[in-house]
Write a protein that binds this DNA or RNA. Structure first.
Lengths: 88, 88
DNA sequence: TCAATTGTTGACATAAATGTTTACAGTTGA
DNA sequence: TCAACTGTAAACATTTATGTCAACAATTGA
């Protein structure tokens, strides 16, 4: 695996770590976060399983899910990406 | 469609608009951007068709593709999300 | 003690992103 | 004039995210 491929994996892990941090700072369980996301978009049926997979970097979350996460957590989209490889 | 669902669509469009703006500011064609992304990750075979679909909000781009876009454009991840619904 | 909550994982089905090819219209530069 | 480039799109194949259900260990609170 090339350096850049490792970097891509690292970013996925960091995204998950940051999501977990934001979720816990709001005092939400994975189940509660999923439920809130589903309240926001009626066509959404996010499961707590999906949250777990994202937080542990086991999946490639899609943009629409990222947006729902931001709306449910009441943060700006770019706050979900406020981390960097260097200070981690 | 609920207000929140419209908001989700708007964010997808804004992401595409912002990507296009960043790409053009670097003087890259959709083909060149795709090629650069493929140079970064050897397992990646992004096609210019995919770039077009993302820029026009016709697809739900995944996190790994978002990361490759940032690496290819040489911008921070959150720069891809530096926009908001209000001033658009 | 024990029922409820929480996070994780596995298995499988379905929906959707992406790969790939082809085509086409508009533009650009020689 | 015309070949090359550019962005878009359709059609179909393949890969993968997500949905769904079940199970499990650890924790918590009554």
């Amino acid at each position: 695996m090339s350096i850049n491929e490792k970097k891509i994996n690292s970013y996925k892990m960091l995204f998950g770590d940051n999501l977990k941090k934001l979720r816990e700072s709001k005092g939400l369980s994975q189940f509660e976060l999923a439920s809130t996301m589903n309240d926001i978009a009626s066509n959404s049926k996010i499961d707590k399983t999906t949250i777990s997979r994202i937080e542990n970097g086991r999946t490639n979350v899609t943009l629409s899910t990222i947006i729902k996460l931001a709306l449910a957590l009441e943060v700006e989209l770019n706050e979900l990406f406020s981390f960097n490889l260097e200070n981690s």
